[in-house]
Design a protein around this nucleic acid. Structure first.
Ligand SMILES: [Zn+2]
Ligand SMILES: [Zn+2]
Ligand SMILES: [Zn+2]
Ligand SMILES: [Zn+2]
Lengths: 134, 134
DNA sequence: ATTCCGAATGAGAATCATTGTCAAGTCAGC
DNA sequence: GCTGACTTGACAATGATTCTCATTCGGAAT
């Protein structure tokens, strides 16, 4: 029954720290950034451990991971349901978006070409209202 | 104006070799793979040069670049117009797909949230007919 | 509480793609 | 044949991520 774990990651001081750090951010962050943030907060966690924790959580579906335009893996605590992201290229401000339309479309396209076990990645980048001047 | 270059990349032996190698592939390939292929064909080109050529061509819009699930940059010679890809997770078989629907959708979503200068990435992964058994 | 064992940690080395450096090479036009 | 701007490529350097492995931890059972 349960409490904090459910079926995901086993709670240790470090993993809890990483999870907590993610709650403090609203945008996508890299492993290194999380590591920094923890260190700054006096909450020391080894870099390897941060990497492992993030991957484990992402595998458990507790986090969303995507690659920044520079190719680095960045993570974010998101809602449980399937969605995509609208990300500000400048400040990182992120909005979760859902689109039954695209979901349907990707499925249709895949089927049409005989592809099975379909998955997809879709991210939208732009500059948010605050950043693109006003 | 103009012959083979127009505004893109200046033709040298090496760059022509890289371009030619890409014609021989139908799927996305990494810089290292191109480099290998060239070496195998006796057409020696320095690795740095391959990287530079690929980036230049991608910048010039002559190539499509995306990140494999492992995060490496992979390139492919594609049609000029805007499109996305349906990629076989197993063999790499790639199909270019277009979807006015999604284009419209991303634009609408971005506008709705006040984001400007919008761009997007969308790739569909699956196993092609030949690969997912038969 | 104490014991026990597999899972988790972390310091540091090892990988690996990508980028930087810079001396030598290429080529066009003078 | 000389000059200068652009290219090349061997090699070093970077930087993110992964691996190693001795040590520590958590927590279930005693
Ligand atoms: Zn998300
Ligand atoms: Zn912004
Ligand atoms: Zn393409
Ligand atoms: Zn296939």
């Amino acid at each position: 029954m349960t409490s904090t774990d459910s079926s995901g990651v086993r709670p240790t001081r470090q993993r809890r720290a990483v999870a907590a750090a993610l709650e403090d951010f609203d945008d996508f962050r890299s492993a290194q950034e999380i590591h920094e943030a923890l260190k700054a907060a006096g909450d020391n966690v080894g870099l390897s451990t941060v990497y492992r924790a993030l991957q484990a959580m992402a595998d458990a579906g507790e986090l969303d991971m995507l690659r920044s335009e520079a190719g680095e893996a960045v993570y974010r605590r998101c809602s449980g349901s399937h969605h995509h992201h609208l990300v500000c290229r400048v400040c990182g401000a992120t909005v979760e978006v859902e689109g039954p339309t695209v979901e349907r479309w990707t499925r249709a396209v895949a089927a049409e070409h005989g592809y099975a076990d379909v998955s997809h990645t879709l991210e939208i980048f732009g500059t948010c209202a605050r950043c693109h001047r006003g």
